[in-house]
Design a protein around this nucleic acid. Structure first.
Lengths: 204, 204
DNA sequence: GTCTATATTCCGATAGAC
DNA sequence: GTCTATCGGAATATAGAC
């Protein structure tokens, strides 16, 4: 009978624990011991499976970004009309972050620390494609149906408004006294609010 | 004659170097040796002046946030009319970050890692005030001059669009091939673009 | 106050028993 | 594969000369 382990084997358990620890503490802040504790086993095991901390981290980082980003570029390259595309992107992006609130800050930290070559290697020389979205924006502008804006500015605005509220969550908590429940509600509201906001601002 | 040192004394030199290193590498990533190298003196000195790495870091963190945030709340509590206030905030906020591009990620990391009590202590029990800005938004809404939006959502949008592009800079570099010079130009443009964007979206 | 030298602690990694 | 024990280097911190 073929090996078909339903429960996670050790390697998977390690990955799960490593993911949790690296996401909250980052590469420099995380300790192999922390991960071992999280798995409920000892450090030597981690080295047995992944040789070094850096290799383990790289595995996690790849897995995390590869899971997080491509789905979004798929939306950008889809055939949806512009406004629907904006709505789909924001809604899905925010949903993903609600599920994994630590991912944005994790990725931001690492892309700011790792050398550029690391990013390139990670994507096998290819970069996430968004050209179709940009084309659509330009097309609508020449048609005159939206006002002229640099497409990159629109992308920045959209991603900013989706991701930043999560990484700055303690700030809202602090200055506006928002509770965890209230925050979640706010973010759910934003799934509709942000696209409206963007679309509204594109009107002439 | 009273001691009136024009040039930075040693303590100030250390603070300057520590600030630079901590801002770019974070607490966990920074080495006391890095800071010593930056000062051009040796590690023992750092301990002589600040005893521990943690204490040195805390000094930097306090100094940084205390310098960065209050000016912004001053704008929120000022007597400027709503739209002008939005323009003033964005322009000044973006300018500040252009001067110190590492500050946002630095602060985001620490407010996400430090316990809530730390933040409270840091602000002496008081929190940055923004109530006047919120009041103005509500007033304009009841007057019917802007469409109804949750004030916190507007604040989130505004801060997101000002700060996020900087923390995600490597991303724009990577997916859109933006150079440093182009990026700076984009950000300068945003000093006008973002407020326009916000105001446009508030119109009915 | 500033330095060199050294102590101490921590942490990643390996050796070797089972 | 998993464990205990330990090595070796790196980083924080201190001692003590000048």
């Amino acid at each position: 009978m073929a090996k078909l382990k339903i429960d996670g084997n050790t390697e998977e358990k390690i990955l799960l624990a490593a993911r949790k620890v690296f996401l909250s503490k980052g590469l420099a802040g995380a300790r192999m011991q922390d991960i071992a504790d999280e798995v409920g086993m000892n450090k030597a095991l981690l080295h047995y499976y992944f040789r070094t901390k850096d290799k383990l981290f790289e595995t996690i980082f790849k897995e995390t970004t590869r899971q997080f980003i491509p789905r979004l570029t798929t939306i950008f390259q889809s055939d949806l009309p512009l406004f629907e595309k904006i709505e789909a992107f924001c809604s899905e992006y925010i949903d993903k972050i609600i599920e994994n609130p630590f991912i944005p800050l994790f990725i931001l930290n690492e892309i700011n620390k790792q050398p550029y070559s690391f990013l390139q290697k990670m994507w096998g020389g290819k970069k996430p494609e968004i050209s179709k979205f940009f084309e659509q924006l330009k097309t609508e502008q020449t048609k005159g149906s939206i006002r002229p804006v640099e497409p990159l500015q629109v992308l920045m605005n959209m991603m900013s408004m989706c991701a930043f509220p999560f990484v700055a969550k303690p700030l809202w908590k602090f200055v506006a006294g928002v509770t965890d429940e209230q925050f979640l509600e706010l973010m759910k509201t934003r799934k509709k609010e942000v696209p409206m906001f963007i679309i509204q601002s594109l009107k002439k």
